[in-house]
Write a protein that binds this DNA or RNA. Structure first.
Lengths: 255, 255
DNA sequence: TGCGAGCTTTCCGTAGTATGGAAAGGTATT
DNA sequence: AATACCTTTCCATACTACGGAAAGCTCGCA
């Protein structure tokens, strides 16, 4: 968890501290943080003071521990609002869950990962896979494959060449040529499935939300445990997901 | 919207840019942002480049406009998780709304304001007052008065002395002595009401969430339009709100 | 087509701020 | 009482951030 790319500018160092702080929900001390970041303690302390002055960091005066501040919550909500994660997407996703009886997930492309932005719980009490704000792999999930397949050509090519095809489930596609074919098929058929590619015992079907300019804005998926959901039952949810995606395509702001 | 307190350090300047960017959901150009912030254009541009490198800012290559990046969403969700806004509070609040048939709001103290962190819509289709991530006044709302009344003594005193008692509704308390009495009463009776103090036509009742150490963690409220909700009907929701607050008192992390 | 206004981006010598080792001041543990 | 480890502050120096200026860009207009 050490700092590899040594940021030379003060702003970069401060931002890295924020990211590191995000990994400590219960707060950390200055020296621990300095060790993690690879900065001198005094530098770390000074940067934290600056971050705190503007509400990006808060410190408990008692325990001398630092954590993320409310300003980040505020700005995070702004992003959620501006990108339509909160107001617009939620009702549409709830409708999908009402029809499928399963959870509905939404994610967007964020560099070489997907970022889960929202989920709606289903009536079944199952563990949720994608917590909002967490990152997940692109190469072995239904949503991830959609995001690649419908990304702008240069981005798609770049991802196809550089993604690490790490095996995470029993059926993960690890061969680059086969993966390229898979993405092409997803692009052709307009949806993707993941049959225990991400995790043993989990299946999912996903669709892209393709905006007016033809670029992918987000993707939606329905996951379900493999033991009670054969693949053809899962693909039966496709019309419903496609409807929702088409609706979101015009509702979501085009970035 | 110009820069009053001239930040002298680079980090402070960068953070201010983030806050300013938050006011432009659809993106903004460098020179406009530089004007708003009061920085030279070149400085602004360099800072934006740093912010973008770490995902705190994103720019549309086409339109040359900058906006808040996904990293802020990610970190905002971490805050939401760490403070229990998302996982813990939501079900409790939904239960309150199920019982009252009205929306339920939650806010926390953030300097001289309250920060709305969550709301649950009621069945009635009414305009929501507190959008999550937005700030609201302390002196003329039920939740705000609870946050003051149950804050640590020094904080309470500081707020009582310095808050601007701006009249925002027909019944806003603008006299400092009377306001001090009002806060004392709230502290005695354990809840607060706001009868068109914040906005004409809106009533609310609110309770504090008082943590194990006796400090206020958050506050909950039930707002309703005045025309169909007499004050005594609103206070009838108090047992339900108090129950919820007591439950949250042990569930929310003590900061 | 050429011009000008206003934008974004890059450059680079200098000014001045960030740097970090060291010391001071805490707090818990032995 | 002594030790260890932490947080916070200090300050002379080095080096990074600064910002004016210039280059490169797009657009609108004559």
């Amino acid at each position: 968890m050490a700092a590899q790319p040594v940021e030379s500018d003060a702003v970069g160092k401060a931002l890295r501290l924020l990211v590191l702080l995000g990994e400590h929900p219960d707060g950390v001390g200055v020296s621990r943080l300095a060790r993690d970041a690879g900065y001198p303690v005094s530098t770390t302390h000074r940067l934290l003071t600056s971050l705190q002055r503007d509400g990006f960091v808060r410190s408990d005066r008692e325990s001398r521990r630092y954590g993320l501040g409310l300003r980040l919550f505020e700005l995070g909500q702004r992003v959620s609002q501006a990108r339509g994660f909160a107001g617009v997407a939620l009702p549409v996703m709830q409708r999908v869950t009402a029809q499928t009886g399963e959870p509905t997930l939404m994610s967007v492309l964020d560099g070489p990962h997907q970022l889960y932005v929202h989920h709606v719980q289903g009536p079944h009490q199952i563990r949720v896979i994608g917590e909002p704000g967490k990152h997940g792999p692109l190469h072995c999930t239904a949503m991830g494959k959609c995001l690649i397949a419908f990304a702008p050509a240069e981005v798609r090519e770049q991802l196809l060449e550089s993604l690490a095809l790490e095996p995470l489930g029993p059926n993960t596609i690890t061969d680059r040529a086969r993966f390229r074919e898979e993405v092409a098929r997803v692009r052709d058929q307009g949806y993707a499935v993941s049959d225990e590619e991400h995790e043993s015992g989990i299946r999912a079907v996903g669709v892209p939300v393709v905006g007016p300019q033809g670029i992918v804005l987000a993707s939606l998926s329905t996951p379900a445990p493999a033991y009670r959901m054969p693949m053809d039952e899962l693909t039966a949810f496709l019309p419903c997901l496609v409807d929702a995606a088409r609706e979101l395509a015009v509702l979501l702001p085009t970035p």
